Amino acid sequence: MLTRALIVVLVILNLGVALWWMLRGEPAAAPPAAPIGVAQLQLLPGDAVTPVAATAAPEAAAPALADVTPAPEPAPAPAAPAAPTPPTTPTPKAAVAAVPAPVASTPPPPAAAGPAQCLSLGPFADRAAAQAAQAKAGGALRGARLREVADAGATRYRVLLPSAPSREEAQATVKRIVAAGLSDYYIIGQGEEANAIALGQYRNREGAERRMAALSAAGFNARLVPSGGDGSAQWWVDATLATPADAASARQRSGAAQQRSLDCARVR
């Protein structure tokens, strides 16, 4: 009897649920979600709408639109992981490179000076004219000295060694001359120059002076004997050029008519 009553109750409940399910209607569809950042249209209450507002231009109703959508908050940027700190290792003292001291620049060595060049400027009629020419040359000459030529009009020049006390001594001097590598000599046998040694005869003074310089370098004190002249004297300026290869400029500044090369050993 009880079982039958429970079955009847269950049947009634099932029928009621089925009836409610058929009579409840279709569920209202949920409004779609509004996009982010777009203003939503809100309906005002009916009593707030006036005929003027209903017939207003779309521009007048524009202020009624209000964006009530909350702005999305920017997502926090993920924190960058901290770079690992490399372990510090003590630097040994031997590994520290020494900073080299600045090296002072060494000036280039001065250029080697060329060989000295000497000359004679002249001829001048007297000592005063030679001194004036030396002053005009100025710094173009160094170590200048005046030299007098006793017989400037000579036509030939002889180089002689003084007369020896005897012929034997003269012959001993000749042996020394030969040992020095010199030639062109003879012993004068008679006259005022007996036992003198003649070492050449020259038509110009420069050749005779070169012969005397070679004899002087070998240790012989020879003398120059001019002949065939009128006995007039001339003066010359012997000097070393301050600037080599500038002989023409020195001659023009001094006003000399001639210039002659000179052995610098005779100037010192």
Rank of each mutant, 00 (worst) to 15 (best):
P87C: 07
P45N: 00
G114R: 05
A48S: 02
P74T: 04
R260Q: 10
V8F: 12
V159E: 09
A247E: 11
A132P: 08
A180P: 01
D238H: 09
A62K: 15
R127H: 10
T69F: 14
A233N: 09
A61Y: 13
A5P: 07
G231R: 02
I7H: 14
L65V: 15
T55R: 13
V149L: 10
R4F: 04
A218C: 09
V149C: 03
Y186K: 06
P92V: 06
P109N: 03
N221E: 15
S183Q: 10
P74F: 04
F124W: 02
V174D: 00
A57W: 13
A239E: 00
A61D: 09
L182I: 13
P86H: 11
P244D: 14
I188V: 11
P81T: 14
T69L: 15
P32E: 12
P74L: 08
L146Q: 03
T88W: 12
T91M: 14
E26V: 02
N14V: 10
L44H: 03
L121H: 06
C118R: 01
A57P: 14
K93S: 13
A137C: 05
A144W: 00
E193N: 14
G122A: 01
V99E: 04
N221Y: 12
M1Q: 07
T106M: 09
A116N: 07
S249E: 13
G229N: 02
T69S: 15
A218V: 04
P78C: 03
E169D: 13
P100F: 01
N204D: 15
A97D: 14
P72D: 14
P102K: 09
R266H: 08
G189C: 13
L43A: 10
A198E: 07
P58N: 12
P58E: 11
A128D: 01
A233I: 10
Y202P: 04
T55I: 08
A33V: 11
A116E: 05
A194R: 12
E168C: 10
A218M: 09
D151Y: 00
A29C: 00
G122T: 04
L15K: 06
A80K: 14
G46W: 12
V99S: 02
P70C: 07
I12K: 06
